[in-house]
């Protein structure tokens, strides 16, 4: 049973190596007719903020639930000059993010980045970057369930009518039931919002911590749901209000801890279990934000100094 492990020189893992554009695919994978259809849906989505436009979602070379909707929107929007960033739960280096970034590097030959400020397109699964986005950026969300009313009304014919008639009482009832049962609104992610005072919209499963960032955001926000075949949008500088009650106003998560690596007290923190004896640490979910802060000299409780001056001081 003994296996000898020879010491190998360290090599970059396969997914860190740069990829070449592959031959044989149309630019950004989708065919031109599909792109036209998606582009028309995106334009109507922008014209009717928060309304879910049905579209002919295509088979993508990965399963539903892995961001096929976001990828189709990205494929329709992306051009040769774009720089793409992809995040999964805030991190650039997780499986979903790495693969989607490589997919577009391969099929479209575009530049990719992990820096929020360098990206012109950001495809995201379940987070909004901590750093405020600009007028020149487009944020593309991967959406699993686009219909915010689905949990209170399973029939599509009914939810469509409810949106048409702006009949949203039942949504408030469901939030009220949460207050009646638990004393507060317990929804922590995918917290429903009202866009431009009209459509109630699912912000995709971002933590409610990120909801306020959607309000009057400088960047255009596009949402793609592949399995459910819906595209919707929030134009820049548009009101996005999280639903609440006068006596139970909307609040976001807060932590007593700071980020253990960079010391940030204003970012969304992940709890990381470090051993089997109850040890844990809290770190920024937005990996680029955390890295940038550490490069700038911020150090958390368990962080190591990054700048030469600090290293010198430590030694």
């Amino acid at each position: 049973m003994s296996m000898t492990q020879e010491a190998q020189p360290w090599q970059a893992p396969e997914h860190d190596k740069p990829v070449e554009q592959v031959e044989g695919y149309n630019f950004a994978y989708l065919d031109e007719q599909t792109k036209r259809m998606i582009r028309r849906a995106i334009l109507k989505g922008v014209a009717i903020p928060g309304y879910q436009v049905p579209f002919g979602s295509r088979e993508m070379p990965l399963p539903y639930g892995w961001g096929t909707g976001g990828m189709q929107v990205t494929a329709a929007v992306i051009g040769e000059d774009d720089t793409l960033k992809v995040i999964d739960q805030g991190a650039d280096d997780t499986t979903n993010a790495v693969n989607i970034r490589r997919f577009f590097a391969k099929t479209a030959g575009v530049a990719t980045t992990e820096k929020t400020s360098d990206a012109s397109l950001i495809q995201t699964r379940h987070r909004i970057p901590e750093k405020p986005l600009t007028d020149d950026q487009i944020l593309i969300y991967q959406v699993p369930i686009p219909e915010p009313l689905r949990w209170v009304e399973p029939r599509e014919t009914e939810t469509r009518k409810m949106h048409a008639l702006e009949e949203y009482g039942v949504m408030h009832v469901s939030l009220y039931e949460s207050i009646a049962r638990f004393g507060r609104i317990t929804t922590a992610y995918n917290y429903p919002v009202q866009v431009n005072g009209r459509y109630i919209m699912a912000p995709s499963p971002i933590p409610k911590f990120d909801n306020p960032k959607m309000h009057q955001m400088a960047a255009l926000q596009l949402f793609g749901a592949g399995r459910e075949k819906r595209i919707y949008a929030v134009p820049p500088y548009t009101d996005v209000k999280s639903l609440d009650f006068e006596d139970h106003p909307f609040t976001i998560q807060s932590w007593e801890e700071n980020c253990a690596l960079c010391g940030a007290d204003d970012s969304y923190l992940d709890e990381v279990i470090t051993d089997d004896a109850g040890g844990k640490m809290y770190v920024c979910s937005d990996s680029d934000y955390c890295a940038e802060r550490r490069e700038a000299g911020h150090v958390g409780d368990q962080g190591e100094p990054q700048t030469p001056a600090q290293k010198g001081a430590a030694e």
């Binding site: 582009r39 995106i42 922008v46 329709a76 007028d135 255009l220």
Partner: peptide, 10 residues
């Protein structure tokens, strides 16, 4: 399309 998207979004 991107020009029109920019125009429609702004």
């Amino acid at each position: 399309f991107r020009r029109l998207l920019d125009a429609m979004a702004r």
